Amino acid sequence: MPKIEIYTQPGCPYCIRAVALLEKKKVPFTEINAPHGTQERMDSRERSGGKTTVPQIFVDGKGIGGCDDLFALERGGKLDALLQAA
């Protein structure tokens, strides 16, 4: 199983959707609370190459983007293979 990390912010509808999809897939992941102005948010921005929005999702340290990117992988039939790789 790959290591999955998702940076989120409380109340963010995109974060909620992304977390719900990962839960539906029944894969273990680490949710990192990253509200504006926190060190976690700065870490997310640095790791993602400057992206300032949440969620930011990483699989084995590689950024795959945010909620829209996650759902695009799902629609394209590529998410399951990515989440099972390793």
Rank of each mutant, 00 (worst) to 15 (best):
N33L: 09
P2Q: 08
R17G: 04
D80K: 04
R47S: 06
K62Q: 07
V19T: 06
T30N: 03
R47L: 05
E74C: 09
A81D: 03
A85G: 13
G65R: 04
P10S: 05
L22H: 14
R45W: 06
K3N: 06
A86V: 04
D69R: 07
P35W: 12
V19Y: 02
E23H: 08
T52M: 11
P28Q: 14
P10C: 07
E5Q: 11
G61S: 11
G77P: 13
L70H: 02
D68C: 01
L83F: 07
T53W: 05
L83S: 02
E5R: 13
A18V: 01
G11D: 03
Q9G: 07
G50D: 15
F71L: 08
L83A: 03
Q56E: 11
R47W: 00
K78D: 09
K51Q: 13
E31K: 07
F71G: 11
A81G: 04
A18M: 08
P13H: 14
T53H: 09
A85I: 06
Y7H: 09
I64W: 01
L21N: 05
Q39F: 02
A34C: 10
R41F: 13
A72E: 02
L73R: 02
P55I: 07
T38H: 05
L22D: 14
P35S: 08
G37Y: 03
M1F: 05
A81C: 00
D68N: 11
R47F: 00
N33P: 01
T8G: 10
Y14M: 03
F71C: 13
Q84Y: 01
L21G: 12
S44A: 15
P28M: 05
A86P: 12
G65S: 05
V54A: 12
G37H: 02
Q9R: 15
L21K: 11
N33R: 02
P28Y: 15
V59W: 05
R41K: 14
G66C: 04
P10N: 04
R17A: 15
D68E: 07
V19R: 14
C67T: 01
A20E: 14
A20T: 03
G76R: 05
